[in-house]
Amino acid sequence: MNPTVVLVHGAMHTPWIFDPLRERLTARGIASYAVQLPSSAPDSAAARGLTDDVAVLRAAVESVDGPVVLAAHSYGGVPATWVAAEAAQVAGLVHIAAFALQAGTSMLEWMGGDFPPTWIRSADGLAVKAGDAEQSIFSGVDPTLTAEAVERLNWQGMRAFTEKLGAAPADVPLTYIVATEDPALPPAVQEQWAERAAHSVRIPSGHSPHLSHTAEVTDAVAQAVARAVTGG
């Protein structure tokens, strides 16, 4: 049985962001499912944290009949890493310009204790949102698609950044997709994480290669699925 690809979006996103990638995966006979993380919500007061994301993602993985390859973008790499460490169904992990934190570390600690100056804090202090998403998150993406993506951005719960990663897998093969022109997550940092991965791919894109270079990301995810089948 081919693994199902469970897609994990980044901060402030919704599963919609993976529609172009899912269309290409379907065309190649690969089943996929995109999870809505509760840390991302239209209402800042409703935006939850990392542990909530992990619970929802774990339940999504357990609902799949058969093995799973987790493919995560940006912040999504944090809950995906935790679930990969604890769910026996996970046969592979793909990080798409994603955070590969060490267990015991929080996003905010990794960020040096503060958010980028262009980010906006909600009035209730419970969430944040990127104020420069066109340049930081969606650089290199088609302008029409960028406009829709920005319009769909949610608030991201503060606890997604302050809660620490509880576990990281020791034996789940990781494929790291380095976005070599990423203005949001430094490519040099991505390269360091890619050095620890079992496999790595480099794509000349900004922070959202699944939107700007969908074919290349599809190839990388499909290869991770094939390796999960063969154990390679």
Rank of each mutant, 00 (worst) to 15 (best):
S39K: 14
G49C: 14
I137H: 01
V35R: 08
L37V: 03
A60H: 12
Q36R: 15
Q102K: 10
A31L: 09
P183R: 13
L101A: 09
A59G: 10
G49T: 05
L211N: 02
S205D: 03
R24S: 08
A60F: 11
R196Q: 09
L50C: 00
L50H: 07
D52N: 12
A88F: 04
I203C: 09
H210I: 06
R196P: 00
V90E: 02
W119C: 10
V217Q: 04
E109A: 13
P187A: 14
I96F: 01
S39C: 12
T4C: 11
T51Y: 12
I120H: 03
P3T: 13
M12N: 14
R152F: 07
E134K: 04
V90L: 04
R22K: 15
S39T: 08
A71H: 06
L70V: 06
A80K: 12
F161H: 11
P173N: 08
R196A: 11
A194D: 04
W16Y: 15
E134Q: 01
H207D: 05
P186M: 03
V201E: 02
A198K: 07
L57P: 00
A34E: 03
D171H: 09
R227M: 00
L126F: 04
A226D: 07
G113A: 04
K129G: 01
M158K: 13
T144V: 12
A160T: 09
E191D: 06
H210R: 05
L153C: 01
E191Q: 15
T214H: 13
